[in-house]
């Protein structure tokens, strides 16, 4: 246990780390943005009463929920180019894997949220002459969104953590950059400890936020 901690050897490379943080942030913003909006659409398709819409959407969701993200990223990186002849960069592979995965997971959150709204609300919308789309947009979604906020925030946290998987295809995000530093300086203890702390410090407030949201918008909403 007499290791001499030397964090200076990590912070000397702060520019390298900064590149990684930026990479993580870019992945997070793009994948969360695309993943949640795609999830909303997919969730509504899942909710559709038409079998022709419902079944393919369900297949999509099940496939992406029941296979590991890492397999998805690697598949997009190594397999998709063979299939299509298009070159896939690490960045694109990571975006594809994480986004499509997030769509599948958030689709279930959206569907669950929409389903949790009482039938009477639909009927009330109909009774004052609203169309399906209008009722959905103006009556159902605003109520459902409140209940969905905590699980959607959790999704965001998952995406942030998932972004580290991009290091497997050598996309320069935080973990990848720490790997780089560790291999230059032989300081894996400090390098990986710093990365762990960075994630902890960034995500802890978000986790606390989900607790607050759960308490405020949990099952019983006034």
């Amino acid at each position: 246990m007499n290791h001499n901690w030397n964090f200076a050897s990590v912070f000397a490379y702060w520019e390298v780390l900064a590149v990684g943080l930026w990479g993580t942030l870019v992945l997070f913003v793009i994948c969360t943005g695309l993943g949640l909006s795609g999830g909303l659409i997919m969730g509504m398709l899942r909710y559709s009463k038409s079998r022709w819409v419902n079944y393919p959407a369900r297949l999509y969701v099940e496939v992406f929920r029941n296979t590991p993200v890492l397999v998805q990223i690697i598949w997009f990186f190594f397999a998709l180019p063979v299939l299509t002849g298009i070159e896939v960069t690490p960045f694109l592979a990571a975006i594809l894997g994480i986004t499509l995965n997030t769509i599948a997971f958030s689709a279930e959150v959206f569907r669950g949220g929409i389903q949790s709204i009482e039938r009477e609300q639909w009927e009330a919308g109909k009774a004052i002459g609203m169309s399906y789309g209008q009722t959905m947009r103006r009556v159902i979604l605003p109520q459902a969104l409140k209940r969905m906020l905590p699980p959607l925030t959790s999704r965001g946290i998952e995406v942030f953590k998932m972004s580290t998987l991009a290091s497997v295809v050598a996309y320069p995000e935080t973990l990848q950059q720490a790997k780089l530093i560790a291999s230059y300086e032989y300081n894996p203890i400090e390098a990986y400890t710093v990365v762990a702390l960075i994630f902890f410090v960034v995500l802890l407030p978000m986790v606390q936020l989900t607790y607050v949201l759960e308490r405020r918008f949990g099952k019983s909403d006034a």
Partner: peptide, 8 residues
């Protein structure tokens, strides 16, 4: 819960 499993 907040640190990525790969980092761990």
């Amino acid at each position: 819960r907040t640190t990525p499993p790969l980092v761990q």
